[in-house]
């Protein structure tokens, strides 16, 4: 039974697309047939983060409107055979997305893929609402920062009221997980940033993972290589473990850098 996972946050710039790319690549690396869909109509970016921007011909909107077949719009990743990308339109506006159209495309994708990852746009408009509407699971990407946590709380409210699972009688509610990104263990330890526990206490949903602030994330975006496909980094390991938890593995949450300061950190201590 395939699963639809929405990667959402409310607030922009917290790492939704980076996380959607890393999670879908991680699922594909584990051998699951995975597709990642861009719901940000008019502001397409998943294609760049996945490194397939030059191969976009048809898109999600073309498929919804019947101008192209789904198989024409799907871009097969050249690095991971289990991974496909469904880009969105850069020129249409978001009214081109309809609930029926999205539902039909997702049903067709369910026949072929184990995991369907929906990369939500920021905000709570149509694109964001449709990205979450059919979801079975939600990954709430949150930074340890007041506006991001507040927006995530708002998204939790929408996940529990404005989705198919919320509307259907007897359906299990959406399984929402917290993915804390851009976490800085040192600043958190110094009391300058909320701790993982602080955020968990406020949002009260299970923790999927903690992604440390890492230069590997910008490098990944620069090169169009999802974080888990690039060189080994703390962020890549954290994403890989989050993906394993998403598929049901029990892995203890380790916060890189918190218990094991690096060589330079030990020398320079907490003066920086």
């Amino acid at each position: 039974m395939s699963k639809v996972i929405v990667v959402t946050s409310g607030k922009g710039g917290v790492g939704k697309t980076t996380s959607a790319a890393a999670i879908s690549a991680g699922l594909a690396k584990q051998g699951h047939k995975t597709v990642v869909i861009d719901f940000d109509v008019g502001l397409r970016n998943l294609d760049m983060i996945m490194g397939c921007e030059r191969r976009v011909v048809f898109d999600f909107i073309n498929v919804i409107q019947g101008d192209a077949k789904l198989k024409q719009a799907l871009i097969k990743d050249r690095r991971l055979e289990n991974l496909s990308v469904l880009p969105t339109s850069q020129t249409r506006d978001k009214d081109a997305l309809t609930r029926e159209g999205v539902g039909k495309v997702l049903d067709e994708l369910r026949e072929e893929f184990d995991y369907i990852v929906c990369d939500s746009p920021a905000g709570i408009e149509r694109g964001a609402q449709l990205a979450m509407y059919y979801a079975d699971e939600a990954v709430l990407v949150t930074n340890p920062e007041v506006s991001s946590v507040r927006d995530s709380d708002r998204m939790l409210g929408l996940l529990n009221s404005k989705t198919r699972r919320a509307e259907e009688d007897g359906a299990e509610p959406i399984n929402a997980h917290l993915l804390l990104t851009r976490f800085d263990p040192k600043r958190s330890g110094d009391g300058e940033m909320m701790t993982v526990e602080d955020v968990l206490e406020i949002l009260a949903i299970p923790l999927l993972g903690v992604i440390p602030e890492s230069p590997a994330v910008l490098r990944a975006s620069n090169e169009g290589v999802p974080v888990v496909m690039g060189d080994k980094s703390r962020a890549a390991t954290a994403y890989e473990e989050a993906v394993a938890r998403l598929t049901g593995e029990q892995i203890e949450i380790r916060i890189e850098g918190e218990d094991r300061p690096g060589f330079f950190q030990r020398i320079f201590g907490r003066t920086a």
């Binding site: 073309n62 192209a68 020129t91």
Partner: peptide, 22 residues
């Protein structure tokens, strides 16, 4: 990427003509 996108801004051409071409 932008060299391609800027030329097609709002005109409905660019990759959008492909469904019609097809």
């Amino acid at each position: 990427l932008l060299a391609h996108e800027r030329g097609t801004e709002g005109s409905g051409s660019g990759p959008d003509y492909l469904p019609l071409l097809q």
